[in-house]
Computed example of a mutant assay.
Amino acid sequence: MAASRRAAAGALKQNPHQLRDSGERNLESAIGRALRAVRQQQGMTVVELSGRTGISIGMLSKIENGITSPSLTTLQTLSHALSVPITTFFKSYEERREVQHLKAGQHVEVERRGTRAHYQYHLLGHIGANNSGVVVEPYLIVLTGGDDDVFPTFQHDGIELLYMLEGKVEYRHGDQTFLLEPGDSLIFDADERHGPGELISLPVRYLSIICYPQA
């Protein structure tokens, strides 16, 4: 078990405690990242862009890596060659990184398929379009139970994480069933059929965090 946990940790690609280099947030680096992103989105190589613009491969490499500050004339040439507004190169520098803070009791009860008298969704926050390319929907789900409750089966895009806060429930994923108690977590591919089964101890409260690609 310990070995599998170490293997899983070793497979993670990102260090959550690593800070960006201060240089990565300066204007030159922002322009360089934007230029590279637009060029790659259009399936163009540095060599091809150099041929279109007359800017040397070496200079393009320096711009994309944030080593040099391009003139407005150079940026205008690049914008014409790539058919994008010149402001495209400044967007990531000017964009705000969103944050949302909800105090206790301020969450919004929302209607989703499965919302009913004994099954409530409380949306804990929402950030719209963002640079990460990922949408995250965090919910607090409360099941208070009823004599004849049969909960729906869900199936949707993305990855879902459940974290149990209170109660005890059998949760279905595909042909498997998992007993969830306070402190337990379950993470799964949400494209498989899933949903709560037997409510063993009420009330049941758990966090559901759904992540999927931004459209």
Rank of each mutant, 00 (worst) to 15 (best):
Gln76Arg: 15
Ser50Glu: 09
Ser29Lys: 13
Ile86Pro: 01
Leu143Phe: 00
Leu179Ser: 10
Lys103Val: 08
His194Tyr: 05
Ser79Gln: 04
Arg172Ser: 12
Ala215Ile: 07
Tyr206Val: 11
His126Leu: 12
Leu162Asp: 05
Leu202Trp: 01
Leu49Glu: 07
Leu165Thr: 06
Val46Met: 15
Pro70Tyr: 03
Gln42Arg: 15
Ser22Cys: 00
Ser56Ile: 11
Leu207His: 07
Ile187Asp: 07
Glu95Cys: 04
Gly146Phe: 00
Glu48Asp: 15
Arg97Pro: 00
Tyr171Glu: 09
Arg33His: 06
Thr87Val: 13
Leu102Asn: 05
Thr153Phe: 01
Lys168Trp: 00
Ile200Phe: 00
Ala2Val: 15
Ala2Leu: 14
Glu95Met: 11
Val84Lys: 02
Gly128Tyr: 07
Pro138Cys: 10
Phe151Cys: 05
Gly23Gln: 13
Tyr212Pro: 07
Lys13Met: 10
Glu109Gly: 01
Ile187Arg: 15
Tyr139His: 13
Gln14Asn: 11
His173Trp: 14
Leu12Ala: 09
Val135Asn: 09
Arg6Asp: 02
Arg20Cys: 05
Ser185Asn: 12
Leu202Val: 10
Glu170Gln: 14
Val47Ala: 14
Ala8Glu: 03
Glu137Thr: 08
Ala117Pro: 01
Thr74Lys: 12
Glu192Asn: 12
Gly125Thr: 09
Ser208Trp: 04
Gly54Phe: 03
Leu19Met: 08
Thr88His: 13
Val84Ser: 01
Ala7Ser: 02
Lys91Thr: 15
Leu179Met: 12
Arg116Ser: 15
Gly197Tyr: 00
Gly128Met: 11
Thr87Ile: 09
Ser71Pro: 03
His156Pro: 02
Phe90Gly: 09
Tyr139Leu: 13
Leu27Lys: 10
Val169Asn: 05
Gly183Asp: 06
Val136Tyr: 02
Asn15Val: 06
Leu12Asn: 03
Val169Leu: 13
Leu162Arg: 05
Cys211Leu: 13
Arg97Ile: 14
Glu98Gly: 07
Ile31Met: 04
Leu102Cys: 07
Arg36His: 12
Glu28Phe: 07
Arg112Trp: 06
Pro138Met: 10
Gly145Ile: 01
Ala8Tyr: 01
Leu186Arg: 02
His101Asn: 10
Gly158Tyr: 00
Leu78Glu: 02
Leu202Gly: 04
His122Leu: 14
Leu82Lys: 04
Glu192Gly: 04
Gly43Glu: 10
Pro196Asp: 04
Tyr121Ser: 06
Val47Cys: 02
Tyr163Thr: 11
Gly125Gln: 04
Ile127Ala: 08
Glu170Ile: 13
Thr77Val: 14
Tyr93Phe: 15
Val110Ile: 15
Asp184Ile: 05
Ser201Trp: 00
Asp189Glu: 05
Pro213Ile: 05
Asp191Trp: 07
Glu94His: 08
Leu78Asn: 04
Leu78Thr: 06
Met164Arg: 11
Thr87Glu: 13
His118Val: 06
Pro152Asp: 03
His101Val: 15
Arg113Thr: 13
Arg25Trp: 02
Arg96Ala: 14
Leu207Asn: 05
Ser69Arg: 14
Asp149Ile: 03
Gln14Val: 15
Ser69Tyr: 04
Leu202Arg: 09
Ser83Trp: 01
Ala7Asp: 02
Gln106Lys: 13
Lys91Phe: 08
Glu166Thr: 11
Arg36Thr: 09
Asn15His: 05
Asp149Ala: 05
Glu137Arg: 08
Val108Cys: 03
His126Phe: 12
Val110Gly: 11
Phe154Asp: 01
Leu186Ala: 03
Arg5Gly: 00
